[in-house]
Design a protein around this nucleic acid. Structure first.
Lengths: 184, 184, 184, 184
DNA sequence: TATGAATGAGACTTCATTCAT
DNA sequence: AATGAATGAAGTCTCATTCAT
């Protein structure tokens, strides 16, 4: 891929993230193209379909999450690392659920789609969880899938709390309460 | 209102709930009308706008939730009542969040809209919460708004867990874990 | 026809005249029914079609015009009578053209439709015109059809002048100027 | 604008003028698109709204009228120029009034809309009128607004006369009679 | 390769007309 | 005979996607 093509791809991804976050995933692709400073044609050359774009944005977020989480594997305190992982993901995931829902509505199962990131996240999460459990910081009866579900839920709770008038502080508060149920 | 008109309204509400749950809130109104066995015109006579329909469905769910919660006020054990309220709402609320999001995307603040149900729910929730706290079953540092945010989050977590392959059992499991953070 | 039925017909005609004048002939039939205080069903029992209603309103105006004109046949001064006829018709005809246009758009030729009023108007107009011409008050080279065309034109000019900001006085002014071309 | 885009815009304008003249301004936009040989989408890309299209057609006619009138400023005989201006406008304006009415019905005041053509027309008309008055060809007591109103009325009269069976000749005849009221 | 004009299916909504009550 | 709920064709407009420039 030529350098300028790669650059356009990057810009489109950023623009998409911004536009979909602000106006919802039903925003027009043309808006995304405009925000990226390119024509629609270019957008469709890079992402064959609106859903492909949505998926790419979602994956980019997942990759970033995976990176963040892997960095925490090096931490000394397993409990603190787990906590930071949880809160960090909630903080970053604000509108991520919207992508999943939009894709689900289009009949695309993100979970099922072949994806190199998924197993990577799963493995990292499992390691962080196991260590925290061995250190006695997290309940023994939860598995990685539980954590993912609660992560999704905490993100949603944070979103709601913030929207209902609690402001940014409410985001953290909701996530902390969910964490309280996991960590002992 | 004539008997047949009321009956159609009821049917439309049911059809809308079903169709929007199955195909997402972006399903065509015509689909809803067809599912209800009436013409589109009838749908629009009852609900002036697609958003009005979405809102009506949302309100119907809220009313049902309020009824369920009020019934629990009569329970003997405040802790069990609170627990039941929480789990019951999660069980019923599967796609409720979708309505809120669709309405929010349309610029309609359901929270702000004048609504007799909202204060009713709030008051009931507050009573259930206070009693459970006085009985020592629930943490003292949570307020009704926290409970609502966690309810929304737990519902989302349950939805995700179920979708990710956990089956119906996973729904309850996720909600229980959130509850564990609230109840002592 | 029963007395109440006739009464409804009358009310509908009045309501239609008012509603169509205020909101244009594209106003909904339901609006007319509401203004008349009856259901749409009643409206359609009396007038099989929206166009039939439009036509009835148009005819009612034509009948009124015919009455006014016939009364002028008894006047002493033929010139004054002609003048009064002309200005009177312009004054009353404000939105009449709208009916004709709406009917024309629907492919209905009002002129052609069998109508007892038309020949009556034509005859009266002819008489008024001939007398005024014989009295030397009106140009000899105009025929009844010319007068009708100029009447329609003067009404339109009056409408425009009024709408353009001239106020009610401008209505008369425009009509007078057209009359000046006819009367010597 | 790209060459093909400008060409389509032109085609749309022509098609709209034709379709609206033949079937009335309530003709479907889809008809206009078909007549222009383009898709509806293209029509709406060029004219955001049906009213915008109507307005554009109206303006195009006004521009053409302004051009015709300006050309007459160079004429030798002021009276003949005024006469030609009047008859020429009536000849060309057949359905123009329909646009104004459609726009008015939609709540759009064409007169008020910022428009470079309007003052241009007004100025030209004023010059033609003043010269004709100074040459003693036109009554001294009429102002440009009167002329415009009479122009609108004469056009309407011509339209009626033609429609009532007089044929094209009747158009001129009606306009001449109105002119007779203005010119001495 | 990038652009943005063109496309047309499909969405929401209105309204003349019919028909059960 | 009156009512007004139901109907569905038709209208306006949007938007993902294609294609000429």
């Amino acid at each position: 891929m030529r350098a300028d093509a790669r650059r356009n791809r990057e810009r489109l991804l950023e623009a998409a993230e911004k536009v979909f976050a602000e106006r919802g995933t039903s925003a027009a692709t043309e808006e995304v193209a405009k925000a990226a400073g390119v024509g629609v044609g270019t957008l469709f050359r890079h992402f064959t379909t609106k859903e492909a774009l949505l998926e790419a944005v979602f994956r980019a977020r997942m990759d970033a999450a995976a990176d963040r989480m892997e960095r925490l594997l090096a931490a000394d305190d397993p409990g603190a690392a787990f906590r930071e992982m949880f809160l960090g993901n909630v903080a970053e995931s604000s509108r991520k659920s919207a992508y999943i829902e939009a894709l689900a509505a289009a009949g695309i199962r993100v979970d099922v789609t072949s994806d190199a990131t998924r197993p990577r996240i799963h493995a990292t999460l499992e390691a962080l969880l196991r260590r925290a459990q061995e250190a006695g910081a997290v309940r023994k009866d939860v598995d990685p899938d539980d954590v993912i579900a609660l992560l999704v839920g905490a993100a949603r709770a944070a979103e709601h709390a913030e929207g209902a008038g609690g402001g940014p502080a409410a985001r953290t508060r909701a996530a902390e309460m969910v964490l309280d149920g996991l960590m002992r």
